[in-house]
Computed example of a mutant assay.
Amino acid sequence: MLLCLALVYVVWGSTYFGIKVAIGSLPPLGMLATRFLVAGVLLYAFLRGRGVPAPSRREWAASAAVGLLLLGGGTGLVTLAERDASSSVAALVLAVSPLFAALFARLWGERTSGREWLGIGVGLVGIALLNVGELHATPLAALLLILAPLCWTFGSQWSRHLPLPAGLMGSAAEMVTGGVLLALLSVLFGERWGTPTAASLGALAYLIVFGSLVAYSAYMYLVAHTRPALATSYAYVNPVVAVLLGVGLGGETLTGLGWAALGVILTGVALVAWPRRVRTGDTGTVGAD
């Protein structure tokens, strides 16, 4: 679980910058379709070669629903928004994901502890401080960035109650179906491919291997085995990584207030991630923490 958290925290934090570089010369939806189709097919072929059963029709249908919400609605809307917003701003707005996750989890009877609510609040305060003085997105980009975590967190919580393929086959099926849906959307919106730059192709390769094959599979493990607030706590660390990459590689600057905000964000993460005390008669998800 700790390894999966580390992968999701660090790798997904870097994908915001990777997406920004990739869409510099690649169509947003077409780039994502390529990313998830390649990653999904590779993982599917590897698992089938090791004797893992193919998903049933019911499991393919459930995977398509999750792929549409997470990859199409979540990642797709973020990628479209990054045409007019910086990678840092995109990561900052998506920090509301743990709050949405906690709210959606209650639809299925899962509870959120008082300390988790406190951690969510502290994390959001840190995000607000980090955003002071930063560039702001256009109204359309801001709207897309608000809708993206709604799709992502609802899909994440719904996936816990759907008949998805077991283990990594679930990730493979979601990426394949999500990639197909994104490809259809790319054609529907009339996206055209030009001549990609070496930087865009390199960023796409990084997104395929690390952002999809590695981090997405790690995230789906966390969704299935940990409580919602912890599974989505990556949304507090991702902005830290995104801003550090923006400062180090993108020429952005970070004020003293920004560095102080990072400490507040990490405090929120600690409050959310700290294990609960198991109480007699507790039938929640504590045992999976």
Rank of each mutant, 00 (worst) to 15 (best):
V132C: 01
G13Q: 09
P55Q: 11
E191T: 12
Y16Q: 09
A273V: 08
L7M: 10
V66T: 15
V66S: 15
A90H: 11
V96I: 15
T153V: 01
T232I: 00
T195M: 13
L118H: 03
G74K: 12
A62F: 10
A260V: 00
L266D: 00
W152A: 06
G178D: 10
L37I: 05
A198R: 13
S88P: 13
G263M: 01
S56D: 14
V89M: 15
L37K: 07
L77H: 09
A261V: 00
R111A: 14
N131V: 00
V264G: 02
R83A: 14
L271P: 07
D282W: 04
A203L: 11
L145G: 04
L130P: 02
L2T: 15
R115F: 04
T153C: 06
G178H: 09
W259Y: 07
T197C: 07
L257C: 00
A39W: 11
I23H: 11
A64K: 13
V214K: 10
L99V: 14
M175A: 08
W12M: 14
V122G: 01
G268N: 01
V272C: 03
F17Y: 15
A229G: 04
L7Y: 01
L92Q: 14
Q157D: 04
L118N: 03
G248E: 02
R227W: 01
V214D: 09
A224C: 03
S186D: 08
W60M: 11
G281P: 02
F189P: 04
P139K: 03
G18F: 09
P163L: 02
G250N: 06
V96C: 15
G202D: 05
R111S: 14
W117F: 05
R50S: 09
G263H: 01
L207A: 08
T253Q: 06
L230I: 02
A101W: 02
T283H: 07
L94G: 14
L5D: 08
G251P: 08
L185D: 11
L213N: 09
T226Q: 07
E59N: 14
F210R: 13
E110F: 05
A218F: 07
A203M: 11
S156C: 01
T197G: 15
T112H: 10
W60D: 12
L145N: 04
I146G: 00
